[in-house]
């Protein structure tokens, strides 16, 4: 038998990676809309408290550090994957997952505090835009965490085949992307509340 014409399969990897980049850009535009909304509505507090009264820098700083670390461990996982070291890859992804979940936990704690104090998203346009922006990022982290779980299962059962590592590359792109978005959230929502 002759070798199959590989026109379709050949570039698969570079195709999916390019496609994933384009997807990430579309996601970035969605976040841009949320940032623009936040910027436009930040002062529309409807007589309620504004950013400077509501947000604490400490909590946000902790979240930032956790997420940055998780990006680092995700990178370590990818390095291990390229070395074909299955166990290490799984371990580093587990650490990443744990950090991601911690981040989510802290975020939910912040939300529940705000809500308990009566600062819900129904109270003002400013709070609506704050909750929308931050929780959209949080939702992404949740999806990313689910993805990590699936990825770990795949590594575990299939090993680090090219098919799997290509998926891992996209996962890590996604995770780093969320990190970058968070840096913007940290700057624009939390840091700028204090200046």
């Amino acid at each position: 038998m002759q070798k199959p014409d590989l026109q379709i399969t050949q570039h698969n990897d570079s195709k999916t990676i390019l496609g994933f980049w384009v997807y990430l850009m579309t996601d970035l535009i969605m976040f841009a809309v949320l940032f623009a909304t936040y910027a436009a509505l930040k002062t529309s507090t409807f007589g309620g408290p504004g950013p400077s009264e509501l947000f604490s820098l400490n909590g946000a700083l902790a979240e930032t550090l956790i997420l940055l670390t998780s990006s680092f461990t995700c990178g370590l996982a990818m390095l291990a994957a390229h070395r074909q070291n299955k166990n290490q890859t799984i371990i580093w992804f587990l650490v990443t997952l744990a950090l991601g979940l911690t981040f989510l936990g802290l975020e939910l704690k912040e939300f529940s505090q705000l809500i308990a104090e009566g600062h819900t998203w129904q109270k003002s346009a400013f709070l609506s835009s704050f909750f929308a922006l931050v929780s959209t990022h949080g939702l992404h982290i949740a999806i990313g965490s689910l993805w990590i779980v699936v990825a770990i299962k795949q590594i575990y059962s299939r090993g680090l085949t090219p098919f799997i590592t290509s998926k891992l590359t996209r996962l890590s792109l996604f995770w780093h992307f969320l990190d970058i978005v968070w840096i913007f959230i940290f700057t624009i929502v939390y840091l700028m509340a204090k200046v």
Binding site: Q122, K123, S124
Partner: peptide, 11 residues
């Protein structure tokens, strides 16, 4: 929420 409403600071 109040992104586009006429009250509560919506725009």
């Amino acid at each position: 929420t109040h992104f586009f409403t006429s009250g509560f600071g919506g725009n």
